[in-house]
Design a protein around this nucleic acid. Structure first.
Length: 878
RNA sequence: GGACGCAUAGCUCAGCUGGUUAGAGCGCUGCCCUCACAUGGCAGAGGUCAAAGGUUCAAGUCCUUUUGCGUCCACCA
């Protein structure tokens, strides 16, 4: 790939990837460099994952910070890996074996698990390879998987330890049950989705008077088959006299009582609630309070069981229809009202979740959440953007216990063994469990391991330290933990972020990351979430093929404010930018020598530099400071905007145009090269491929730019005076252009510019660069005139900015311009005067805090200074 | 039902602590293949900053209300 050819992203990127694979410049060791460790752990994508735009954004952001920190001299570790994604992976493999006419049941647990591992071995690296193609500078040698052997040790250790600490318990509760996956789900895995359903009003007759009845309303009529009471609010006058009476449940003819419970909202429906303790969390609670019977009417797969009487064997939704029809036939269906409400659905397969009574393992969350809450209130972690802090905090405050057992086969088997009585023995190994059982029974007894596996998140919440070798206490763990910044999507604050904080505090005694950065969701141009099922997803790999990974990264970050609305054409910006960089570099390379290209600051004599050089060096220093600050503050879109503007508008459009004719001068070559190298470095975290390729050719050194130092701030080169002067020059040229258009000045007409501020210096500058200005302005003649006063600061430097310019002569309406100026001046004086009055008001001075007074004074001074400038301009017009 | 966010040019968005004539990219119009770049250059059109009140000498920026859109949370059957 030669810079004298056109820019082909694909060639550049393939070449760099090969080099990185060979040189391994991203490998981090706990060797302790001067600056210390900087660690980021990747939010592990599902092994079933295929790179989508969300990953592309998420990983680009991580890569930017990692590369930036690495260039700054940190031992930067970006830990990659994948998540075994229990239900998701099992679903994939189940579909696969279904093609062979097999199910997991027919295959059996052992064989099925083997198939899962086979699948993992074959396809598990897909997403890792794709992340690699994106240019992610992960330490690939360390790639982890949540079901690696040592990682599994960590999971077991945590389960056993939490159990010992009394934070894990087993119990019969109503949990969210997915009848399709046939497993329990955590609350967070059962998503609320709006549903236009019905409210069925059903009459329950009294036992002693079948002509009288109580009407209840329900959205799930089939559950009435499991009713064991009807509840009313004790304060509800309509029903008070009925409390304790007996009703007869239609269809089933079970006798049930009317009970009183504060939970019931008298204003909803009829004010009387059917109570189904085995199929509704509230009813479950009421059932416990009132010692009701718990009648399960459903098999785990959603088919009604024998408790459903005549409806046995029907699927729950068929059952619903049948129950409604039967009620209607019996004349017990009073009315059907349409009713919009939310229904919980399985986050993996979208099946309507059933509240289901079953025995599961839970983590007692309150003690864990309290620690996390205390840490958060002490400032850890910081959350960016801040508005998510409240969301995070509220969840911790309203924490509920976490159901962690799953009735699937892919995952970490629960480390619990039962004897024949069903007593559990919690241990890391079967041997230990046996020992416990022996101690209890005084002899060896047969044990059976719990068939369930743990929630996937029960392993991912250990990610920041389990990937570093915990529970072993190695050098990596102590050096790289805690990590720095976690980049993730807001959707998994609860699933993952908050839980990692809890695990980190519980087992490492430290919050696992100092910062959490939550970025937006990637959406299509219409604002819809990108998803395969909608068919609106852009494939990052396709974009990489067409525009290049650099372009993908650049455009992604440029557009990353809140949610990102992206369409294919957006990537042209990134491609065009990389192309421009390529070509500008080519220009500089054609006009420089290997020696001048690699000159550093020390070889430059600041006093001997011309104004143009001092200006671009100063602007470069300004951009460098701004970009560094923006990266540190996680304002990536802003940092890339600063770079775009500095490189394209300042460096290419102005600077290179100005020096094009002066490249025979070695100093000009040195300065142009120096700044270009700085630009390449600053852009490297964002677009690593093209910058490194150019850098290599430009300097003639085969280097991994990622290990080159980030440019240092050379404060002395930041020269505000020169900045202002050349800024003024550019202002003038731009202004003349505008004025020329505004007043229809023809190219051959003579134009004079009057400007205010550092007149002598600026005038000299203008003269020095008159030909360039002339060229840029495309005028026949330009003369520069100054009648303004030079303003100098205390140090004798030039103060103020070149701000005001105007063509002279009959070409414009001078009177009008003077009037405008006068108006402006009087307005500003009025403003300054009113601030002054406020500052002189004793009441204000007493009450206002000092910083407010100081600010007001600054404002006043600023207004007055500007006014002085404008007055001088006005004078010069007179 | 609760919490939060957004509304600025045709489109996608900048606009930090309020301060001269509100910016960029894309798109559009006109002129240019000038030996780094047509994935480019130069010039130009296009905005009552969602609406209404308020605070202020000064509001796109702060406060209140309204409207529209979006997100998260949620055991009203």
């Amino acid at each position: 790939m030669d810079i004298n050819t056109r820019y082909f992203p694909k060639d550049v990127e393939e070449k760099r990837l090969k080099l990185w694979d060979a040189q391994r410049p991203f490998h981090a060791t706990a060797e302790k460099s001067k600056k210390g460790a900087f660690t980021i752990v990747i939010p592990p994508p599902n092994v079933t994952g295929v790179l989508h735009m969300g990953h592309a954004l998420n990983n680009t952001l991580q890569d930017i910070l990692t590369r930036y920190k690495r260039m700054q001299g940190f031992d930067a570790l970006w830990m990659p890996g994948t998540d075994h994604a229990g239900i998701a992976t099992q679903n994939v493999v189940e579909k696969q074996i279904a093609k062979e006419g097999l199910t997991r049941e027919t295959l059996g647990r052992e064989k099925f698990t083997e198939r899962l591992w086979e699948w993992k071995k074959k396809n598990g690296d897909t997403i890792i390879n794709q992340l690699h193609k994106l240019g992610s500078s992960c330490d690939w040698d360390r790639t982890r998987f949540t079901m690696d052997e040592d990682y599994s040790e960590a999971v077991k250790e945590v389960f056993v330890e939490l159990y010992k600490r009394g934070l894990i318990y087993q119990g019969h509760y109503i949990i969210n049950w997915c009848p399709r996956c046939e497993t329990a789900l955590a609350d967070e895995e059962a998503e609320h989705k709006d549903h236009n359903g019905n409210l069925w009003h059903i009459q329950y007759p009294f036992k002693d008077n079948p002509d009288e009845f109580v009407t209840v309303a329900t959205t799930r009529p089939e559950t009435m088959l499991g009713d064991t009471a009807v509840a009313v609010n004790p304060a509800d006058g309509r029903y008070a006299h009925l409390i304790g009476k007996t009703l007869v449940l239609p269809l089933i003819h079970r006798e049930i009582k009317i009970i009183a419970d504060d939970f019931v909202d008298s204003s909803f429906g009829t004010g009387a609630v059917k109570v189904t303790p085995a199929h509704d969390p509230n009813d479950f609670a009421m059932g416990r309070r009132h010692n009701l019977e718990f009648i399960n009417i459903m098999h785990p797969n959603g088919i009604l069981n024998k408790n459903a009487g005549a409806f046995e064997g029907l699927d729950r939704f068929e059952g619903r229809k049948a129950v409604v029809k039967a009620l209607k036939d019996e004349g017990r269906l009073l009315k059907i009202e349409s009713h919009a409400h939310a229904v919980r659905r399985c986050y993996r397969c979208d099946t309507v979740v059933e509240p289901y009574l079953s025995k599961q393992w839970f983590v007692k969350m309150k003690p864990l959440a309290d620690k996390a809450l205390a840490a958060f209130r002490a400032g850890k972690p910081r959350i960016t953007p801040k508005r998510w802090e409240k969301v995070y905090e509220n969840w911790l405050v309203d924490i509920r216990d976490w159901c962690i057992s799953r009735q699937i086969w892919w995952g970490h088997r629960i480390p619990v063994w039962y004897d024949e009585e069903g007593s559990p023995f919690v241990a890391k190994t079967e041997v230990e469990a046996r020992a416990q059982a022996r101690a209890k029974h005084g002899k060896d007894v047969p044990l059976k391991q719990d068939p369930d596996v743990l929630d996937t998140w029960f392993s991912s919440w250990l990610w920041p330290f389990a990937t570093l070798g915990w529970p072993k206490q190695g050098a990596d763990l102590s050096y790289f933990y805690p990590t720095a910044t976690l980049f993730t999507a807001p959707e998994i604050i609860f699933f993952w972020v908050a839980r990692m904080v809890m695990a980190g505090l519980e087992f490492m005694g430290e919050v696992p990351f100092s910062d959490v950065v939550l970025h937006g969701t990637v959406r299509d141009a219409k604002g819809r979430k990108m998803s395969k099922s909608l068919g609106n997803a852009l494939d990052p790999l396709e974009i990489i093929g067409e525009y290049g990974a650099d372009a993908l990264r650049f455009s992604m970050v440029l557009n990353s404010g809140q949610d990102i609305f992206i369409s294919k054409d957006k990537f042209e910006i990134g491609r065009n930018f990389a192309n421009k960089l390529w070509n500008a570099s080519r220009l500089v390379m054609m006009n420089t020598t290997p020696e001048t290209r690699t000159t550093d600051w020390k070889a430059l004599d600041q006093g001997a530099l011309d104004v143009t050089s001092r200006w671009i060096l100063s602007r470069y220093q300004g951009a460098l400071a701004q970009v560094s600050e923006a990266i540190e503050d996680y304002r990536y879109s802003e940092s890339i905007n600063i770079l775009y503007d500095f490189f394209w508008s300042t460096y290419c459009d102005w600077y290179l145009e100005m020096v094009k004719t002066k490249f025979d001068d070695a100093t000009t070559q040195r300065v142009a090269s120096l700044v270009l190298r700085g630009i390449l470095k600053m852009l490297h975290p964002f677009i690593p491929f093209v910058t490194e390729e150019i850098y290599e050719q430009f300097t003639g050194r085969e280097v991994a730019l990622t290990n080159e130092p980030w440019p240092s701030v050379e404060a002395r080169w930041h020269d505000q005076d020169v900045d202002a002067a050349v800024g003024g020059l550019i202002d003038i040229a731009t202004g003349i252009r505008n004025i020329r258009a505004q007043w229809n000045i023809k190219p051959q007409d003579e134009v004079a510019a009057v400007f205010v501020g550092p007149s002598e210096e600026s005038l000299a500058l203008l003269k020095e660069n008159a030909d360039i200005v002339r060229k840029l302005v495309r005028l026949g003649t330009v003369t520069f005139e100054t009648k303004a006063v030079t303003v100098r600061n205390a140090a004798g430097g030039v103060a103020g900015e070149v701000r005001y310019f105007i063509p002279l002569g009959e070409l414009i309406d001078l009177e009008k311009e003077k009037a405008r100026l006068k108006d402006l001046i009087s307005q500003q004086e009025k403003a300054a005067g009113s601030i002054e009055a406020r500052l002189n008001n004793p009441g204000f001075v007493q009450k206002a805090p000092p910083e407010v007074i100081e600010k007001e004074r600054e404002r006043m001074d600023l207004l007055r200074a500007k006014n002085a400038e404008l007055s001088r301009a006005l004078q010069s017009l007179a």
